[in-house]
């Protein structure tokens, strides 16, 4: 067989080395990947910002500061501001219980935590409407006491809490499970109280996972659409979050305005991705994933 050497660095590999794909195949695969990811990932990011600034910078800032938009931003911040801290506490508590203790029904708890994550956001919203809506289970009682939940701010906050509660727990459970409970047991034996153990031993170990969970939770809380759309009354200036307001603007053919609102959330998304990458780098440095094997075949 005629050998056609391929130079890679200073080494020489016989053709048909059979240890890696031949050049043309590699080229096609890389090109295919760059094109698909470029189309699906890079382009959308570009589109958001270009469309947002289509009518100029002044229009952009006017769009995000006009009263209904400002109200939407405030409501979004309110909902996230309540949902994230609550879910943070719940998430840590649940992850703590699941990873450090044995109890029956653990599997059920873990599965229930995943509930909002697994079902369509529309169905999440539907459950709230069926519970608190006028025709719902608690409807008559709420109406009698003049409490509005559905089609009002409380409903939006509740729905937001519901759809985001898995995030912190899901991030922490695998981390805490893999760390085991030895360190905490050692602390207890040395005389630390439950709270001290948590603050000085548990917390430092989970801080990166916790950070990422909180960021994801917040991103979802601020960006939730389906569930919130169902329970909101879409009342301008009152029961619209940023995504809902963007929808309204879009349906009114105010594309630039809609994208202006969307751009706020997109910046948040980019921050989320950056934080994730940084956290992964950190765990890699600590010896997470091993270095690539030295190989002459790449």
């Amino acid at each position: 067989m005629e050998a056609i050497g391929i130079r890679i660095g200073e080494t020489r590999i016989a053709a048909n080395s059979a240890l890696t794909e031949v050049r043309p195949v590699r080229f096609v695969l890389i090109a295919g990947t760059v094109l698909s990811l470029g189309l699906f990932l890079v382009l959308p990011l570009v589109v958001v910002f270009v469309e947002a600034f289509k009518k100029g910078v002044e229009f952009y800032f006017a769009a995000i500061s006009e009263p209904d938009a400002a109200a939407a931003i405030r409501l979004t911040l309110l909902a996230a501001g309540i949902a994230v801290p609550l879910n943070l506490i719940f998430g840590v508590a649940a992850a703590w219980a699941i990873s450090k203790f044995r109890f029956s029904g653990k599997n059920l708890l873990v599965t229930l935590i995943d509930l909002p994550f697994s079902i369509s956001p529309v169905i999440s919203g539907l459950i709230y409407v069926l519970l608190f809506g006028l025709q719902g289970w608690l409807g008559p009682w709420l109406a009698a006491h003049d409490i509005k939940i559905i089609f009002a701010v409380p409903g939006i906050v509740l729905a937001t809490i519901f759809v985001t509660f898995p995030f912190v727990a899901r991030e922490l459970i695998p981390i805490m499970q893999s760390q085991g409970s030895e360190e905490e047991e050692a602390a207890r034996v040395l005389g630390a109280s439950g709270w001290q153990t948590f603050r000085r031993v548990t917390l430092p170990n989970i801080k990166w996972g916790l950070l990422y969970g909180v960021i994801l939770c917040n991103a979802r809380a601020m960006g939730e659409f389906g569930a919130v759309s169902v329970v909101s009354g879409h009342i301008r200036g009152m029961t619209n979050t940023i995504p809902l307001h963007a929808e309204i603007l879009y349906n009114e053919y105010n594309s630039a305005g809609a994208f202006a609102m969307a751009s706020i959330l997109t910046v948040l998304t980019v921050i989320t991705l950056v934080v994730k990458t940084l956290i992964e780098r950190k765990s890699e440095i600590r010896g997470g994933r091993g270095a690539d094997a030295v190989s002459a075949t790449e």
Partner: peptide, 25 residues
């Protein structure tokens, strides 16, 4: 043949034939 030697002067001869440029099969 899983790794290749550096440079041009190194060689592996199997049964007096240069194997460095021959594929696995």
């Amino acid at each position: 043949g899983i790794e290749a030697p550096d440079g041009d002067d190194g060689a592996i001869l199997i049964h007096s034939e240069d194997a460095t440029a021959i594929n696995f099969r």
